[in-house]
C-alpha cells in the first residue's frame, strides 16, 4: 500500500459520486487517471484490504433485520460452536471477545420473522442460549479509518 492507495481509501470512505463518470471524477480529485483508480481499487479488493466497494444498505429500511448477538461458550466447546454458528449464512461477522460472553456476532436477515427463527435455530444447534441485542438507537458517528 503506497500513498496513492491511502489517498484512495481515505477519499472513498467519504462517498462515491452518482454520476455518469464517477471514477473519472474521483481520479481527478486525487490527481491520478481513471484507469489507475479502477486498477488499484480492483487490486485492493482482490487482496482483501477492502471488503466492499459500492452501496452500503440500511437493512431495516429494506425490510430486513440486524442484531448483535452474544453467547457464553466454554473454552472446550468454543471451536465447535463457532463452526456451527458461522455455517448460518445470516451471520455477517463473528468475533471472539475476552469476557464471559466470549462470542459476538452480527445477524442480518431478510425479514424480522427470519430473525426470530434463526435465533432459535442457533440455540438449538449449539445447545447454548443466544442473547440478541438489536440496536434501539444509533448515535451519529463518522465511521472511517484514516490510513
Amino acid at each position: 500500500m503506497d500513498e496513492t492507495d491511502r489517498a484512495i481509501i481515505n477519499r472513498l470512505q467519504d462517498g462515491f459520486p452518482i454520476s455518469d463518470r464517477p471514477f473519472q471524477a474521483v481520479a481527478g480529485e486525487l490527481g491520478i487517471d481513471e484507469g489507475t483508480l479502477i486498477e488499484r481499487l480492483q487490486r485492493m479488493l482482490d487482496t482483501g484490504l477492502l471488503s466492499r466497494f459500492g452501496p452500503m444498505f440500511h437493512a431495516e429500511r429494506l425490510g430486513g433485520a440486524l442484531s448483535l448477538c452474544a453467547m457464553r461458550i466454554p473454552e472446550t466447546e468454543f471451536d465447535r460452536v463457532a463452526t456451527q454458528v458461522n455455517a448460518f449464512p445470516e451471520v455477517a461477522h463473528n468475533y471472539a471477545r475476552d469476557h464471559a460472553f466470549n462470542m459476538w456476532f452480527v445477524l442480518a436477515t431478510e425479514t424480522s420473522e427470519r430473525m426470530a427463527s434463526v435465533l432459535g435455530e442457533i440455540a438449538d444447534v449449539t445447545g447454548f442460549p443466544v442473547y440478541d441485542m438489536p440496536k434501539e438507537e444509533e448515535f451519529f458517528v463518522g465511521l472511517r479509518f484514516d490510513v
Binding site: 481499487l41 482483501g48 484490504l49 477492502l50 466492499r52 466497494f53 452500503m56 444498505f57 440500511h58
Partner: peptide
C-alpha cells in the same frame, strides 16, 4: 435505503 456509497475497509 443506501446509507452511503464507497469502500469498506478491513
Amino acid at each position: 435505503i443506501i446509507k452511503r456509497m464507497g469502500v469498506v475497509v478491513r
